[in-house]
Each structure stands twice: as C-alpha cells, then as structure tokens.
Design a protein around this nucleic acid. Structure first.
Lengths: 230, 230
DNA sequence: AATAAAAAGTGTAAAAGATACACTCATTAT
DNA sequence: ATAATGAGTGTATCTTTTACACTTTTTATT
C-alpha cells in the first residue's frame, strides 16, 4: 500500500464496536426477552441486554453467535440485524458503537443452568422493567421488526418446539401481532400451507381431547417460499 | 470509574467505522444512484459509493449528513439506515465496519457542480456497473428496502420536485416497484389521500394539454398517517 | 355410570379491497 | 381543419378478508 493509502485510514479515529442481542422466547403466552442484571462493573446492578465487544478476527454476526452460545448454550440460532446505534452518550463509560440483533430461541432447548452464572432473567416484553443504555429502544425496534416479519416469513417457528399444536401457533401469532385471531380463519390459512404438516402425534398435555401436533417442514417451504399468516 | 470498569473497555480492540451513502434520485424514468470513480488512493479508479469515516464527535447519522452535504450541497436530506456490514475482508486495505444509509434527493435542487470535484457519476440502478467492496450488495439491499417502504410511507416525494404531475408520480412508483400500474386505479388511490393536493398550477412542459401539478402536504399527512399507494 | 367441563375441530356467507378495462377532453403542431 | 399527444375519468368483476356457532372427544367429578 502506498503512503497515501495508509494515511487514508490512519487519519481517522477508531471506536469500540459492540453487539447487543435481543433474545426472544415464547412462554406463558408472552413474548419474553433475556436480560441480565449486571453483577460486574461498570453499571453493576443495572439491567441490560446481553452483549459483547466485537473482536479482531470476527464479523458482527460471528460476535452475536458467540454471545448467544455463551449465554444460551445454543449454536446456529436464527437472528436478524435490527440496527446500529451510535449516539454520542449512549454508553456513558466510553464511545461505543453498537449493532443490535434479535434472536429467536426455543426456551425448552436452551441451557437454563447458564442463567445463574451471568445473572440472567427472562422478562415479558409487555411490561419491560427499567433498562440501561438505549436498550429499551433496541428491544422495541426488534419487537416491531419481528411483528412486521412474522406474517410473511416463517420465522415464528424458531420460538416453538419442533412440534406444536395449532393453538400454540395461534397464540404465538396473537401475542406477537398484539391482536386476537379468529380460530377458523387462522386454521384455514394454515391448511393452505402444505409445509405445515401434521406429525400424526397427539399432544395430550394441554387438553383433554388431545390436539394434533404439527411441524414446519423447511425443505417443502423452500420449494414454494409462499408464506402468509395472520 | 473504577479500574475494573476501565478494563471492561480497554481489553477490547477498536475499529475504523465508516458510513456509505446510497444516494438515490429519479430522472429519465430511472432510479439512479450516485457513485464516485475514485481519483485518489486507495482503490484509485474503482467505483464506490460515497462515504466517509466516522469522526469522534459525531453520530453515524451526523456523519451521513456531513457526507451528503459535501457531495450534494444539501442539508436535512431524508435518509434511512440500511444495515451494517462487517465481513473481515470487505475492505482489503484495513478492517472497517461500515453502516449503509440510503438517501433520497431531488436532482433538480442539488448542486451538480460538485460532481466534477469528486468525480461523481449518476448510474441507473437497473444496470449497475462493477462496483468496489460490498457496495453492490448495499445498493441492492437499499433498493429493496425502498421498494418495501414506498407503498406504505410517503417517502417517494423526496425524489420529486415540490410540485409534480400525477404521471410523474405514477412513473416513480412503476420504476421503484418494477411493475406497470393502471392509471385509473392509481389516480383513484391518490384521490383518497387528501394530503396529495392540487396546487392549481398547470405543467405545460410534458404535454400539450397540460397536467395539474400536485404537492405533498406533510402537515396534513401528519394528522392521519394513512398512506397506501401502489 | 352419568354428567359436566375443557379445548379441538370444522364451513359458509357477506363485506371489503383489488383489478381489469376504453373512451373523451384539451391543446398544439402540421 | 385535422392529426397527434398525453390528461382525465367510472364501473363491473374477481379475489381476499372477515364474521360467525356448533359438534366432537376426552377426562374429572359426582
């Protein structure tokens, strides 16, 4: 590289770059998000999203997957970039540019023993506690992005167990969209999508009669890519 | 701050942070984007988006407005964040994290004398030339984001002069959505939105008969926030 | 054994929204 | 006077969305 080219970069400042993860899960008819009550400095005692600093050899997506692995034990988690936040005073400790990603996990599969280690807690997105930094804004933006996405893309299945009842699926949609859905209309729309398949198994836990368990067939979905549900 | 808190930041690497601007304009029935053919190192001769490095005292949005002002002479330009790109090798000269923003300008109002200074050129988004870095991906993502947005939010008016004919507005939508629109249906939808107002002026340039000029009344729009056009 | 309780499962009609479609009008150039 | 150009306008059909109520299956209770 020429001297000029080196200066092109060198004349500019560098910044800490972080990722913050809005980890969503669905339980008790609530969309929940994983927070941590920090038991370390700085900002000990404050509630924040789970996050971490970008390291030299990794992309933002790799940093997110690292943070997710550490805190949930899971790999290959579905995630989506929400946005990058750069207000001068967003982190009072130092100038940090942070990119938020939301992630969708199935709470049954993740390693809940990790919770204690980092002082994590699940909270409902319906009544968020007071949260540090600009993390409340990140959560709201992520929730809105998920709401817009879920009607046209089969991302919601990441929040459910591999097999689920139609009642569970409907409740998930009702909670994320924030409105009641007519049962017959909902099921009509589901039945038009052949990639939402009856497994033949019956769930006897949630009802006396028993409800058919379904699962999302990703391969079949990939053939059509036609999804619409609300 | 405690020693611990200082280490919290100091143990982490820092990065160059940049912004890249997808500056869109509408002319000759094309959605165009402003590129520069670099006449400086590094990557002299390559085509890139207009961008710049984040400076210490500014947010990403301020950096974008700075870049936009320098290259178009305009301030207060409509813009929206597209996403942040962080692949390890995206800039072969150094590790740079870059956030892309698209901006919408009216080509009649901007300072075109600046073009020569930085070797800028407008290209149609329909047949993009070969562009350096990951900038092609940024442009495609921005174009898609604009396409999704324009039907439900009155952002397209930023690409038109303050007053415009309905034919102009329709062509804008046809080009961005990538499909022909029925004239009567389009006008029916426009006439339902009272904030798209007839100015009383007649444009005699584009037709013999003359066409009514309309303008977008932002104040009226803010009262309803109901927009739908496709 | 009969009954009550709980959630699963199922079809049709009306309303709303989206789409298809063709001619007249006003002006200017020839 | 006439031809050419783009502006302007309404209705009928199709598609999609919404509203709506009862029967079925099983278990717990008496």
């Amino acid at each position: 590289m020429t001297q000029k080219a080196r200066e092109y970069y060198k004349d500019n400042p560098q910044f800490y770059v972080a990722v913050d993860c809005i980890i969503f899960a669905f339980e008790n008819d609530e969309l929940q998000v994983l927070l941590q009550q920090r038991n370390f400095e700085p900002f000990r005692g404050e509630k924040t999203l789970l996050g971490g600093f970008l390291q030299a050899g990794e992309s933002l997506e790799e940093a997110v997957q690292r943070v997710l692995r550490i805190h949930t034990g899971l790999t290959n988690i579905y995630m989506e970039q929400v946005g990058t936040f750069s207000a001068l005073d967003r982190d009072p400790g130092a100038r940090v540019i942070s990119t938020a990603y939301y992630a969708l996990i199935n709470k049954n599969l993740y390693d809940s023993t990790l919770l204690k280690e980092y002082n994590g807690e699940w909270v409902s997105t319906n009544h968020l506690p007071s949260i540090h930094f600009d993390h409340t804004k990140m959560i709201e933006q992520a929730r809105e992005q998920l709401r817009r996405k879920i009607s046209f893309s089969p991302v919601g299945f990441n929040l459910l167990p591999p097999s689920f009842t139609l009642a569970q699926l409907q409740r998930l949609y009702e909670v994320i969209l924030g409105q009641e859905i007519d049962k017959r209309n909902f099921r009509k729309r589901v039945s038009e999508m052949q990639f939402i398949e009856k497994t033949g198994m019956i769930d006897k836990v949630s009802s006396r009669r028993g409800a058919s368990l379904f699962h999302f067939n990703m391969e079949k979905y990939n053939m059509t890519h036609e999804f619409k549900l609300k």
